[in-house]
Design a protein around this nucleic acid. Structure first.
Length: 455
RNA sequence: GCGGGAGUGGCUUAGUGGUAUAGCGUCGCCUUGCCAAGGCGAAGGUCGCGAGUUCGAGUCUCGUCUUCCGCUCCA
């Protein structure tokens, strides 16, 4: 596997990923997908959609608003658990939560929950609270650290108009549970999925596109009867594995970790880990969230969230098994897994993107064998191909160099136009995986490439 | 957020206070009948950004942004 520096350089060089706002010196943890990157990511999203929505019995798509009623985030717990009052010790540089400092110092006799930041600062000063690590008394002021991005609705900046950019897409599926159920006449168990951007104000440097302040999630929520949740949880663990393999990730690059320490909403949780160049890290998560979310929304909204089973006439708040894939992480995993560097005999190196035919950003490249003899015909062939497939045309340099260029970005098929094409319309189709060359007419070549590469 | 490195055409890089180097890549022409051949030519850099010191700064100082390594944090 290539190292991270090489991968980042490759991505910029070929047009997969560029640093965000680069001409202004960039913006930390933001990246732009280039011409090839957007094709790759779209292919990944299409494959996910096909796997989880299209080719899945009783599953429905959704595309929710990024800005939601702030009450949603109260109900989900994000407004409290995503927001920490932080203080740093100026002496030893350790960081603490102010409420934890107070509660630990008072041995639990003081509850800091109702205190304002000013009150907490005052309390810490009055009681001469020492740094638990270095025992000194030199804290910074409280800085409110909220993982959610806040913005304002309307023209007046005040708390009444504060709205948040969603930190996960899942809540959109939860609040629309009955809209989907009713409009689609869906029966539990059924699933709702969506692909969309989420935003988190992360402080951690990000390992390229692995952790960014703005990222795309592919989330699928399966709503089921209480008691069936563990069965479906096992089912979706297997499905996540199958999808990872369909991305072209190899068995030995994937690891599974069942959580013992669980988040407040989950009954059981499993993460899919991928061996990234910087280490083993999370690619996806499967969570049995129980009926926690819908019950919370029932409490907070006052709306009934109980489903009436039309066959048994039972009423229950559905359990939810969530499968959450990172779209950007998936793209990064695919690139990490596929990029190979070959050492040649003369000491130079060549890059090869050994990516699956379905995910390849460019499906075919069309070449005239000799520019001055075959360019006109080749341009016509290109015009035919691009009606059906994402493809490119290249008439520069030698034919071998053009093959190598396409190999370096994972293009599965190269189509060469030569004298024979001028005579009888046959082109030469070269397959990157097998290195085989076959001759066929243009229409057959297009059909064949479509059949091999479409999702 | 803390500590320490780094930033010169797309990439790699020379340059230790006196007019900005080269290779690769890219583009054009010639050549080339199938896996990075060859020849000729061209474009592309206010040296991350902003101040300061100096007659003069890519080079020294300060700030700032980005990035890498190590901590810290992490639904």
């Amino acid at each position: 596997m290539v190292d991270m520096l090489r991968l980042v350089a490759y991505c910029k060089d070929k047009g997969f990923v560029f640093p965000g706002s680069e001409i202004y010196g960039g913006l930390a943890n933001s990246w732009d997908y280039g011409p090839l990157g957007v094709e790759l990511k779209n292919n990944i999203k299409r494959l996910w959609w096909k796997t989880y929505i299209q080719d899945n019995e009783n599953a429905y798509g959704l595309d929710c608003a990024i800005l939601m009623n702030p009450e949603v985030w109260k109900a989900s717990g994000h407004l409290t658990s995503f927001s920490d009052p932080l203080m740093d010790c100026k002496e030893c540089k350790a960081r603490f939560r102010a409420d934890t400092l107070i509660e630990d110092f008072s041995k639990g006799s003081v509850c800091a929950d109702g205190m304002t930041n000013e009150q907490m600062e005052q309390w810490i000063q009055q009681h001469n609270v020492a740094c638990p690590l270095c025992k000194k008394h030199n804290f910074t002021n409280i800085r409110q650290f909220n993982l959610m991005f806040k913005t304002n609705r309307g023209v007046v900046e005040n708390d009444a108009s504060a709205v948040f950019l969603r930190p996960e897409t899942a809540q959109g599926q939860y609040v629309n549970f009955f809209n989907v159920q009713r409009s689609q006449r869906a029966k539990v168990p059924f699933g709702i999925g969506q692909i969309g951007k989420s935003f988190r104000n992360e402080i951690t440097p990000g390992n390229f596109t692995f952790r960014t302040i703005e990222f795309e999630q592919m989330e699928f929520q399966w709503f089921c009867r209480p008691g069936e949740d563990e069965k479906f949880y096992q089912y979706f663990k297997q499905k996540a594995h199958d999808f990872s393999c369909e991305l072209g990730l190899k068995n030995e690059e994937l690891k599974y970790h069942n959580h013992e320490k669980l988040a407040f909403y989950a009954k059981s949780a499993c993460d899919v880990y991928f061996q990234f160049p910087f280490g083993l890290s999370e690619l996806a998560g499967i969570h049995n969230r129980t009926n926690y979310d819908l019950k919370k929304h029932q409490e907070c909204s006052g709306k009934q969230m109980e489903y009436m089973d039309p066959i048994t006439n039972e009423k229950f708040v559905p359990y939810i098994v969530e499968t959450s894939f990172g779209a950007d992480r998936s793209a990064l995993a695919v690139l990490s897994s596929a990029l190979k560097v070959e050492k040649l005999e003369d000491g130079s190196e060549r890059e090869i993107l050994d990516i699956s035919l379905k995910l390849a950003p460019i499906k075919a490249a069309i070449f005239p064998l000799i520019k001055k003899n075959h360019a006109t015909k080749a341009e016509q062939v290109y015009a035919e191909f691009r009606k059906h497939l994402r493809c490119v045309y290249d008439d520069t340099a030698s034919i071998g160099k053009r093959y190598r260029r396409q190999d370096s970005i994972g293009t599965p098929f190269c189509v060469t136009v030569d004298d024979e094409t001028l005579k009888n319309g046959n082109v030469t189709l070269r397959n990157r995986n097998t290195m085989e060359q076959t001759t066929m007419d243009i229409a057959s070549a297009i059909s064949y490439v479509i059949s091999q590469t479409q999702i």
